[in-house]
C-alpha cells in the first residue's frame, strides 16, 4: 500500500469517525465511544505500519497480523478494513443487521475478510495473538503480530496468564497495545476496578513498555508505533500504553464512559457529523 501524507491520514481518521457514528446510529446499537478514541491508532496501523494484504488470507503468512481483543470496537475496525480495501465500503451499511458479515462483535463465521478469530468475550485475544506469533516463529516468518486490548479488559485474569507466558517464551514478534482511555461501561476504571500502575505491572511481567502519551495525535501515534516496531525482536514482548480519550472528535462524547455502548439520537448524530467533515465520501 502506498504511504499517505499526514493530511491524508487525518482525513481517513475523520471519515472513520463518521462511519462509526453512522453505523451505530443506523441500528441504534453498538459501541461508538472507544472506536472514536482509537481512530488514529486504526488508521496509522492499516494505512502505514502494517505490511499486509487486503486480499485476505486466513493464514496470513509473510504479512503482519492484527487482532482486536476488545471486540466491541468492531465499528471502527470494520471501517478501517473497508477503507483499506478488505471489503466494499458499501457493506458498512449492513453493520449489526440480519444476514450481514459485519456482526455486532467480530466473527469469522460469515467469512468477513480481515477477521482471523472471533472476539467480544473479553480477555482472550492476547492468548490468540501469542499463538499466532509463535506459529510465525515456527514457520520462519519474520513478520509481526499486533493486537489491541481495552484497559478495562485487563481486569480479566486470562490477560495476565498470557502476559506471563509471553515473557517466559520471549515472544518478541508481538506488539500489543492497550487502549488506555480510563473508561469502561460502569464508569471510570479507577472507580470500577483500579488498574493502578499499568506501566509497572507490565514491566514487572517482563515486557518492554512503550508509552504513547497522545493517542489522539496522529503523528504521535505513528511515531509511537514505529518506536514499538524498533523495540521488537529483542527478546521481549512489547506493550504500547496508548493514552486515548473515549469519544474523541465529538465534543459532547469525549472523555466519558456514557458513550461506551449507547447510540446517538438523530439530533445528536447531526450535531456530531457537523463536527466531522465528510472527507472520503460516506458509505
Amino acid at each position: 500500500m502506498e504511504k499517505q501524507s499526514i493530511e491524508q491520514l487525518q482525513k481517513i481518521c475523520t471519515q472513520l469517525r463518521r462511519d462509526v457514528l453512522r453505523m451505530v446510529h443506523a441500528v441504534q446499537s453498538g459501541h461508538p465511544g472507544a472506536p472514536l478514541g482509537c481512530a488514529e491508532f486504526f488508521v496509522s496501523l492499516y494505512f502505514d505500519i502494517l505490511r499486509h494484504d487486503p486480499n485476505f488470507n486466513m493464514d496470513g503468512k509473510d504479512e503482519d497480523l492484527f487482532f482486536l481483543s476488545n471486540g466491541h470496537l468492531s465499528a471502527g475496525w470494520y471501517s478501517v478494513l473497508a477503507r483499506s480495501g478488505y471489503f466494499p465500503v458499501e457493506e458498512l451499511k449492513t453493520f449489526r443487521k440480519i444476514n450481514s458479515r459485519l456482526q455486532g462483535h467480530p466473527a469469522t463465521e460469515e467469512g468477513l475478510p480481515g477477521i482471523r478469530v472471533a472476539s467480544g468475550s473479553l480477555g482472550q485475544g492476547l492468548s490468540v495473538a501469542l499463538g499466532a506469533a509463535q506459529a510465525k516463529k515456527l514457520n520462519g516468518d519474520d513478520k509481526l503480530v499486533y493486537i489491541l486490548l481495552g484497559d478495562g479488559e485487563l481486569q480479566e485474569g486470562q490477560v495476565w496468564e498470557a502476559a506471563m507466558y509471553a515473557a517466559h517464551y520471549g515472544v518478541d514478534n508481538l506488539i500489543a497495545t492497550i487502549d488506555y482511555n480510563g473508561q469502561q461501561i460502569d464508569g471510570p476504571t479507577e472507580k470500577v476496578m483500579d488498574l493502578k500502575n499499568l506501566k509497572a505491572k507490565w514491566e514487572a511481567f517482563g515486557w518492554e513498555v512503550n508509552e504513547i502519551k497522545d493517542g489522539n495525535n496522529l503523528e504521535a501515534v505513528l511515531e509511537g508505533l514505529k518506536k514499538a516496531k524498533s523495540l521488537s525482536g529483542k527478546g521481549k514482548p512489547v506493550m504500547n500504553l496508548l493514552y486515548t480519550e473515549m469519544g474523541y472528535g465529538v465534543d459532547f462524547m469525549v472523555g466519558t464512559h456514557k458513550w461506551h455502548g449507547s447510540p446517538p439520537s438523530d439530533e445528536q448524530l447531526a450535531d456530531a457529523l457537523g463536527q466531522l467533515e465528510e472527507t472520503l465520501g460516506d458509505y
Binding site: 503468512k61 482472550q124 492468548s127 495473538a129 501469542l130 499463538g131 506469533a133 516468518d141
Partner: peptide, 10 residues
C-alpha cells in the same frame, strides 16, 4: 487461546 492462534499459520 494459544492453540487457537497457532492454527493461524497452519
Amino acid at each position: 487461546g494459544l492453540a487457537a492462534g497457532m492454527t493461524i499459520g497452519g
